[in-house]
């Protein structure tokens, strides 16, 4: 065995130069690595491994606390009495649960929370439904139908995604004034019905459906519309769910536009009403009631998130834009 080895090394002069130190290294490494050392090394690596894991969990735990703390604070503050809230040594758990804060939030002067909820729901549902229809139709046309200038048109649509929405807002504000849409639901719904991003998302999804299915349907003589309804939509259902939820969340969270165009508080959306009501110039705001209102606005979103976590995360990771 060893003879063979040395022969080999001799035969190949080139190698022997580089192989020789190599063998030495290994030999010394072997000598160093005695039985006891191996025990020590394996013990050490175990300790390091455990420490690293502990470190990771501590880091994540702290970060999770930071992330969760505002929610926690919101919840406990919403049931504290004002005097407890104002204690100089804050309490981490309310001494006394004052649920009437919620009633107060609902009945606060000038803040008709119920009406705001209703407004937001109407706007959210109507705009989501219309938006879905429009998006599906457009995405289908771009994905399956052939017409002149398709690619150019699609490219142009995509290009508009780069422009910040505020640029449109300026003129849209003028337009809706001209149309005298102020203080209607229409103004909250119509300008945002078309989302190029959703069209893009859905089109990509449609494109993945093999063309053969479409051709087969054509051969069978089914219409485009039937095909869209019976094949494409069921297949693209997950994306449609994502779009639906994101759109609803958008309606729930939108602030700037309704704040600009709705002056009648009876037609206002929840976010604007919430912020507007609790903006106090001076004096001590009633924080617990305010927090109760905030909880009421936040909870529906959490519920939606709980049920549609997967779809939300999928949609979000693609969009990068909130709402």
């Amino acid at each position: 065995m060893t003879e063979n080895m040395t022969e080999n090394v001799k035969e190949q002069a080139v190698v022997s130069e580089q192989a020789a130190p190599q063998d030495n290294d290994i030999a010394t490494a072997d000598k160093v690595m005695k039985k006891r050392d191996i025990d020590a090394v394996s013990k050490k690596q175990l300790v390091v491994k455990i420490f690293v894991q502990i470190g990771l969990y501590i880091f994540l735990g702290i970060m999770a606390l930071v992330v969760l703390f505002p929610f926690y604070w919101m919840l406990i503050s919403s049931v504290k009495t004002t005097s407890e809230y104002n204690l100089s040594v804050p309490t981490l758990w309310p001494h006394q649960f004052q649920w009437s804060n919620y009633a107060k939030a609902f009945d606060a002067d000038g803040l008709n929370l119920g009406q705001l909820f209703l407004n937001t729901c109407i706007v959210g549902i109507v705009s989501t439904l219309l938006s879905l229809i429009i998006t599906v139709l457009a995405a289908f046309a771009f994905a399956r139908l052939e017409f002149k200038g398709k690619n150019i048109l699609f490219g142009a649509l995509l290009a508009t995604m780069m422009i910040p929405g505020e640029l449109f807002t300026v003129t849209n504000y003028v337009t809706i004034s001209d149309l005298e849409w102020q203080n209607t639901y229409t103004v909250l719904i119509v300008p945002f019905l078309v989302s190029v991003f959703y069209i893009y998302l859905l089109r990509q999804n449609f494109m993945q459906i093999p063309n053969e299915l479409y051709l087969a349907a054509k051969v069978d003589g089914s219409s485009d519309f039937k095909y869209l309804w019976k094949v494409m939509i069921p297949l693209a259902a997950p994306t449609l769910v994502s779009i639906t939820i994101l759109k609803m969340m958008g309606a729930w969270n939108t602030y700037a536009w309704p704040n600009l165009v709705i002056t009648d508080s009876a037609k206002q959306l929840i976010t604007v009403g919430l912020r507007g009501h609790f903006t106090t110039e001076y004096g001590i705001p009633d924080f617990p009631a305010q927090m109760a209102a905030v909880v009421l606005v936040t909870i529906p979103l959490f519920l939606v998130f709980l049920f549609f976590r997967k779809y939300i995360m999928r949609g979000v990771s693609k969009s990068g834009l909130k709402g």
Partner: peptide
């Protein structure tokens, strides 16, 4: 089915 059908994110 699901992976094939939807325009999924990489994560998904």
């Amino acid at each position: 089915k699901e992976t094939a059908v939807s325009a999924d994110s990489k994560a998904e």
